[in-house]
């Protein structure tokens, strides 16, 4: 469950205040709004990359407002993906599990499982600089899901993809939603995506966040 309670964020040229929202456990929420209105800022605040100036952020009922990003157990797929240039695809999927000092056998099982779900088995040994847009997207998604996070944040995950890849990714995101039941907040400005995926829709308009 994701809960924002009267959150205010000041980020350079613009500021958001009085942001409140609740995404119940297992729900797939879509956050819509025009470009440059602070949707990404909200995601960054939830995962801890941006400080909030007031208000509280709760994940599964725990107040994580002042926690380090790494302690929050949130899977984050940024719009620019930000894959790690020096790691292979398999190492991306293993990264969070290595940090958590999981045994190698468990890591191998998880890599195989994720690669199966995401359809990237053939890419595991590849470095990330030669991947296509859709492939990179899958790797970023796998990296974020690898440690079975409580919450998944997706920042316009499909905006840079072509039409057919986007349709595939819709289907994939639906599969992930059904198989993992991870609470998801998905930022987009596509109505189509919202219709296909959302249990719940929020709109950020003129600095006001409301559920529609």
């Amino acid at each position: 469950m994701i809960e924002l309670d009267n959150v205010a964020i000041h980020a350079g040229e613009f500021s958001l205040s009085g942001i409140s929202m609740q995404v119940p456990r297992g729900h797939y929420a879509v956050l819509m709004g025009r470009t440059g209105r602070g949707k990404t800022t909200i995601l960054e605040s939830i995962c801890g990359l941006r400080k909030v100036s007031s208000g509280r952020i709760l994940i599964d009922g725990v107040d994580v407002t002042t926690w380090l990003p790494g302690d929050r157990q949130i899977g984050y797929v940024p719009q620019d993906l930000a894959l790690f240039p020096t790691l292979t695809v398999a190492q991306h999927l293993a990264f969070a599990l290595r940090l958590r000092k999981r045994p190698q056998s468990e890591i191998d099982d998880r890599i195989a499982q994720l690669a199966g779900v995401l359809g990237i088995k053939a890419l595991l040994g590849r470095s990330v600089d030669a991947l296509s847009g859709g492939e990179s997207q899958r790797v970023a998604l796998g990296r974020a899901l690898s440690f079975r996070p409580a919450v998944l944040l997706l920042d316009e995950p499909l905006s840079a993809l072509d039409e057919s890849t986007r349709a595939e990714m819709h289907a994939l995101l639906k599969r992930v939603k059904e198989s993992t039941g991870v609470t998801t907040l998905h930022v987009t400005h596509s109505n189509e995506e919202a219709e296909v995926l959302a249990d719940q829709r929020f709109e950020l308009h003129e600095g006001v966040l409301r559920e529609v």
Binding site: C47, G48, L49, L68, P69, G70, D71, R72, I74, G75, Y76, P78, D80, A82, L83, F84, P85, F95, A96, L99, R100, R143, A144, S146, F147
Partner: peptide, 15 residues
């Protein structure tokens, strides 16, 4: 070097 990769690493559990 793009600092975003370090940001994402931090969400994955890195200090």
């Amino acid at each position: 070097i793009d600092p975003r990769a370090e940001d994402v690493a931090r969400t994955l559990g890195c200090t």
